[in-house]
Every structure is written in structure tokens, then in C-alpha cells.
């Protein structure tokens, strides 16, 4: 597999990108401004696009350039712009009712990363590959996933929930580029398409939420219980 025969420069680049993506996830976790989330998400998507292109170059997978372009276009540009549009329409710019303070959230995120490292080592050991890039890819994939769920749990603005779900998938994208660069092109394409549809859904729903429920936070959503 590709990650086993990398030259050191590329391996370092991969690691740098993976770690930067993880740091950006922490930026999202530690801020209460919705625009910061969006910018961090956009930057993370660009990093993933660069990673796709690099993997495509290193492993000779021409279709990954295409995936890189699509990722940059959709996740790096279209999605953030759509979210910006929704943000401007809703007139919300910060998380108002946080359940956990950002500083506490950062500590919780750190604990999740430690858990992810442990799991990554266990998996790496079971597979019999313990090179740094593979462990790092697994760690980042799992931690971004866990941080996404943490964001879903502790944030209440509808936009934060949307970004949380998108963050969940960014983690998988990032890890899969390094671990399984050969996964068929069609899957990647439809995933991007699927994501676009999902966000359209979200945008519509946010608008409905405002008109029908009169609020954009999930604390207003407590009629259905039991």
C-alpha cells in the first residue's frame, strides 16, 4: 500500500496536513463565533483537497486530481458560501446558549484525541503496520469524527449542527485518502454530490425552522419527548 513506500518528504507533508486538519477541528471546538467555524471548515476542506492531489501525485492515481478539484470546489467554496448566506439571513453570529464552555470543550476534545491514538495503535498493531503515517491517519480520522460528535452534543445553534455533521465526514475523507487511495472514483463523486444535496436540505430546514419554530437553536426543539 501507498503509505508504506512513501519518500520522507511526502510522508512529512502528509503528516503536516493531517495534523493541521486536526488543529482546525480544535479551532472549531474552541470558538463560539459561527463564522469562525465556517472558515475553519473551509480551510480544512482545502487541506483535504491538497492532500488528495498529493496522494494522486505520489501514487499515480490520476482521478484523485479530479477529486481534489471537486473537494475544493464543493466543500471548500460552495458549502461555506451557502452557510454564509444562511448565516446572514438568520442574523445569528455566535453560539448563545453553550452547554459547555469552549475551554472545557477543548479539554474534552484532547481526551478524545488520546482515546483515538490508543485505538489507532491497537488497529495498527492488529493489521501489522505501525508506520507513523498510517497511525497518524487513523488517529486523525477517528479524532475528527469524535470531535464532530462532541460538537453535535454540546452546540445548540442549527448551523453548528450542520457543521458538526459535515465535520464528521471530513474526518473520513481525510483518513481514506491516505489509507485507501484506490477506493473507486465513483464513490467519491457521489459522496460529494450527496453532500451537496444534504446541505441543500439543511439550508431549507434552517429556513423552515426559523419560520415555523421561530428560533435557530435546538433548545427550542423540546416539544417532542417521551
Amino acid at each position: 500500500m501507498l503509505a508504506l513506500h512513501l519518500d520522507p518528504v511526502l510522508a512529512s507533508l502528509f503528516s503536516l496536513i493531517a495534523i493541521s486538519a486536526l488543529v482546525l477541528a480544535f479551532v472549531m471546538l474552541g470558538s463560539r463565533w459561527l463564522k469562525d467555524y465556517m472558515l475553519a471548515f473551509a480551510a480544512q476542506s482545502w487541506l483535504i483537497a491538497i492532500l488528495s492531489a498529493l496522494v494522486g501525485y505520489a501514487g499515480g492515481y490520476a482521478e484523485l486530481y479530479f477529486v481534489a478539484a471537486l473537494t475544493a470546489l464543493f466543500r471548500g467554496l460552495v458549502l461555506p458560501l451557502m452557510l454564509l448566506w444562511v448565516l446572514n439571513r438568520l442574523h445569528v453570529n455566535r453560539e448563545l446558549h453553550e452547554i459547555v464552555r469552549p475551554s472545557t470543550a477543548l479539554v474534552m476534545g484532547a481526551a478524545l484525541v488520546i482515546f483515538a491514538v490508543v485505538v489507532a495503535y491497537r488497529i495498527g498493531h492488529g493489521v501489522g503496520i505501525e508506520t507513523r503515517v498510517v497511525i497518524l491517519a487513523l488517529t486523525v480520522m477517528l479524532s475528527i469524527k469524535l470531535i464532530g460528535f462532541l460538537m453535535l452534543a454540546i452546540r445548540r445553534e442549527a448551523i453548528s449542527s450542520v457543521l458538526g455533521v459535515l465535520l464528521l465526514e471530513n474526518g473520513v475523507f481525510l483518513g481514506s485518502q491516505i489509507l485507501v487511495p484506490g477506493m473507486p472514483l465513483m464513490i467519491e463523486l457521489v459522496l460529494l454530490f450527496d453532500l451537496l444535496v444534504a446541505v441543500t436540505c439543511f439550508a431549507v430546514l434552517v429556513r423552515y425552522l426559523l419560520s415555523a419554530v421561530g428560533a435557530t437553536g435546538s433548545q427550542a426543539l423540546q416539544k417532542l419527548a417521551g
Partner: peptide, 14 residues
């Protein structure tokens, strides 16, 4: 499009 059904739809998709 009632408040309840929007709440249900939102929880469902998320």
C-alpha cells in the same frame, strides 16, 4: 410544516 413536524424533521436528518 407545523412546529412539531419541523422539529421532528430536523432531529431526523441530524
Amino acid at each position: 410544516r407545523s412546529a412539531e413536524s419541523m422539529e421532528a424533521a430536523w432531529k431526523y436528518i441530524i
